[in-house]
Design a protein around this nucleic acid. Sequence first.
DNA 1: CCGGATCCCTGGGGATACTG
DNA 2: CAGTATCCCCAGGGATCCGG
Lengths: 119, 119
Amino acid sequence: MEKLLVNDAELCESKLVLALNDTLNVISGKWKLPIMASLLSGKKRFSEIERNIPTINPRMLSKELKELEINGIVARKVNDSKPVTVDYELTSSGYAIRPVLEVMINWGMEHRASIMGKK
Amino acid sequence: MEKLLVNDAELCESKLVLALNDTLNVISGKWKLPIMASLLSGKKRFSEIERNIPTINPRMLSKELKELEINGIVARKVNDSKPVTVDYELTSSGYAIRPVLEVMINWGMEHRASIMGKK
DNA sequence: CCGGATCCCTGGGGATACTG
DNA sequence: CAGTATCCCCAGGGATCCGG
């Protein structure tokens, strides 16, 4: 009985670790979070995101957007205008990243404050 | 007036970006989060953490612990026993990482579910 | 305008062996 | 036990140019 509880706990723990790794993998790399943050304010075009993140280069932007699309975070839409333009938008799952960002920002601010306090 | 509001907004936005970067820098690398997670359940010794994270090697563990200490996330305490043992413990700022982990885990689970739902 | 193709280079991280 | 010291490797990412 004792043993069973332990197994359940381990099972539960491993699921948490998996979920954490999912998140970590999805936001991995230097640009995913900045890109998602940029898209939080709504649908944007390739060049708009590019201007939004001045230090990124088109290769990286393209690559990261592709990965985000594969992972179901952003949706890509080609407009048949001339010249062709492309819109990127967060999926609902993508928009749901907001709480993650908020909590990270909160912790960053509080941590900085606590460091200052001790100095 | 309009212009002033824009500046405030930009100022605020840049603080948020800084805080996010603080967090990202602190948890950067492959092992910081696992180590912190391991220490969430309380003070541990070097070898205990090592056994807790089977795939890490001593060099990495040492390096990451040092960075975490420098960043005010863990506290190191040497016990003058024989042989010498060392305890690592999260600071209050370190323990405060828990909500970050929780929210990341939540998002990971929900995201996985939403992917499954669409398939 | 939106990328793809190439080349290059740095540093994060693995493996192993050694020491106080 | 709690780390150091070395050596090595590769993938993430920068720069630049090209094409639909």
